[in-house]
């Protein structure tokens, strides 16, 4: 069964089993590296994001607005749009593939159980957050995330990541990246609400949706529409931009102030 179906079935099972099962499942989680119980957040919601790649023009408005909203240090990004130039070998035709990346707020987040002080945790609404008053900066979660969605923030010296702009959601606003997307490519919403736009779109495009690195078993909750399966894994590509190095090995290109 593919991860998206499994994830959807899991969501449905949780809905039908009802809230009574939640405390029971939290008691049962005791094994090493198992997911701990979720805490905080609205247990009746499950936030997810659908990214319609057909609408993305690669303008990086999301990257910039997120950077400003969340005050990330220069050179670190909670979200970014990877851009890849794809050349048809036979014809030489060139197209650009845009791939917005952010935390997948996985249903089985590998970053959460590794945290030695429970500073990073998953809220009951599915959002994975970091309590950076508690975080010791061991960076275990940074290594555990297969999506490179986490980094150590040099200002706070703690783990940092996308929170789906939880502070804005709670104020009834959209995340900065969603708000600023000129093509309306990013859709966020409560996947447990069958009337929400994301639920409607997911039902409509159910068989076309893909997630990144599904084979890792992380059950990502950021779904891509209009995705080419080859880009769900590490791209088999020429690294372009970091080849800007002179004979002495000194980089001539853009430095992010390191």
């Amino acid at each position: 069964m593919d991860p998206i179906r499994r994830s959807l079935l899991g969501q449905m099972a949780r809905l039908s089993a009802g809230a009574a099962m939640v405390p029971l499942s939290s008691v049962a989680s005791a094994g090493i590296n198992d997911q701990p119980a979720r805490r905080e957040g609205d247990p009746n919601k499950r936030y997810g994001m659908l990214i319609d790649l057909r609408q993305c023009i690669g303008c990086q408005a999301c990257t910039v607005s997120c950077h400003i909203e969340n005050d990330a240090p220069l050179g670190n990004f909670r979200t970014i749009v990877s851009q890849l130039e794809v050349e048809q070998e036979g014809t030489g035709e060139v197209a650009t593939f845009m791939l917005p990346r952010l935390c997948n707020h996985c249903d089985n987040p590998p970053c959460v159980p590794v945290c030695p002080v429970q500073a990073t945790f998953q809220r009951q609404d599915g959002i994975v957050v970091v309590d950076n008053d508690r975080c010791v900066g061991c960076a275990y979660c940074v290594n555990a995330c297969p999506y490179d969605a986490r980094f150590i923030n040099e200002k706070t010296q703690t783990a940092d990541k996308c929170t789906f702009c939880a502070h804005r959601l709670e104020a009834g606003l959209l995340p900065a990246c969603v708000e600023s997307c000129v093509g309306g490519a990013r859709i966020i919403g409560d996947m447990r609400d069958p009337q929400s736009e994301i639920s409607r779109l997911m039902a409509e495009h159910h068989d076309e949706l893909m997630v990144l690195q599904p084979e890792k078993g992380t059950l990502p909750q950021v779904f891509y529409l209009g995705m080419d399966e080859r880009f769900t894994k590490r791209p088999e590509a020429e690294p372009g931009i970091w080849d800007v190095i002179n004979e002495a090995g000194k980089e001539l290109g853009y430095e992010f102030g390191h």
Partner: peptide
């Protein structure tokens, strides 16, 4: 088949020193 070149990608540092 096609040739793919990365154009925009962030720099990821190492997390364990």
């Amino acid at each position: 088949m096609s040739l793919v070149t990365e154009v925009v990608v962030p720099r990821y540092g190492i997390a364990w020193y």
